[in-house]
Simulated assay, not measured.
Amino acid sequence: MTDADLAAHLAQVAGRILQEVRGSGLFSARALGKAGDQTANQFLCHALREVRPDDGLLSEEEKDNEARLAKSRVWIVDPVDGTREYGEARADWAVHVGLAIDGQPAIGAVALPDHYGGTVLRSDQPRAVPPAPETLRMVVSRTRPAKEAVAVAEKLGAELVPMGSAGAKAMAVILGQADIYLHSGGQYEWDSMAPVAVAAAHGLHCSRIDGAPLLYNQRDVYLPDLLICRKDMAGRILELVAEGGKEAGGRIPAPRTP
């Protein structure tokens, strides 16, 4: 099984497991998220250690380990991205399985188990991204839209599309449900690694909001911001973000070349 096949298979099976946990009817709304997270995490981590024993592993639901830092190949997983949406049986939650090689997001699969009966987007099977409409659409958090994103959307005349998980937002750009995903509210490597691998393979621009590259398997796994959009939009969006940072007192550095 190739790395790409493995990532997609694991993401899809974990999604089915999560649906079974939710459908069991045994957990309260408060307990469901934890039960789903832990169950899917056990499957993903045991499977990866069985079939890729020499690779490193980083999971949101496991204690971090120093051993991964010495590895060239490190699997980075998020068993349930969008726990609230998972519990509500919405479509905008995801399972992330990705492989970073020498810090780069090399392989990724993002499963959307409640999206049209189950969708898995893969870095090795890119599809054509639908053309942009006349009015641009930007996906933002359902509960805490980032100020930078809202400000950029206003300047672009873009419509805001509230959505749950980071993976669902990134995949929305690929699926033609949105055109821009701009985030600055704080994330970790497992939130973006697999989605970025998939989005980049589909020809989209992926970077930090100052244009810097997204690097993974770092000692500090906090990776607070990102931009995913069509490549022809990236320069203008990065400029607007930088302008907003200057207006706010220089909190955001000037954009780097995409």
Rank of each mutant, 00 (worst) to 15 (best):
L57T: 04
N41K: 05
Q38W: 07
E60I: 06
L32Q: 03
C45Y: 15
L26R: 12
R30T: 10
L32V: 04
R52Y: 15
T39W: 00
E66S: 06
K63G: 02
R73I: 03
K34Y: 10
E62M: 04
H46Q: 15
A47R: 13
A70I: 07
S59C: 15
N41Y: 11
D64L: 10
G56N: 09
L48A: 05
L48Q: 08
L58D: 01
D64E: 14
R68M: 01
K71S: 05
S28L: 03
A31F: 02
E50V: 02
D64V: 05
R73F: 07
L69P: 00
S28F: 08
L26P: 00
L69R: 00
N65D: 13
Q42I: 05
D55Y: 01
A35Q: 15
N65I: 05
R30M: 03
R73S: 07
T39Y: 00
L44P: 03
E61Q: 05
L58N: 00
K71L: 08
E62D: 10
R68H: 04
S59L: 11
L58I: 13
N65M: 07
S59T: 03
L48D: 08
S72Y: 03
D55W: 09
S72K: 09
D55T: 14
R73W: 06
A31L: 00
G33E: 07
L26Y: 04
A40L: 03
D64C: 02
E61T: 07
Q38R: 14
D64W: 02
A47S: 15
R49W: 11
Q38F: 12
K63Q: 13
S59K: 07
S59D: 14
L32R: 10
R68L: 01
A29D: 01
V51Q: 14
V51A: 14
A35S: 14
L58H: 01
P53W: 01
K71P: 00
D37R: 10
L69F: 01
H46W: 11
E66Y: 09
L26F: 10
G56H: 07
H46F: 11
H46I: 13
E62A: 06
A67W: 02
D55H: 15
L26H: 05
L26T: 01
E62P: 00
K34A: 15
F43Y: 15
R68A: 05
L44D: 12
N41E: 09
D55N: 09
S72R: 12
R52W: 15
N41L: 08
D55K: 11
E62H: 04
T39C: 08
A40N: 03
A70H: 13
S72L: 04
N65G: 04
F43P: 05
G33L: 09
L69C: 00
L57W: 01
R68F: 00
K63M: 11
L32A: 07
R52V: 14
L57Q: 00
E62K: 01
P53S: 02
D54H: 06
D64F: 07
A70C: 05
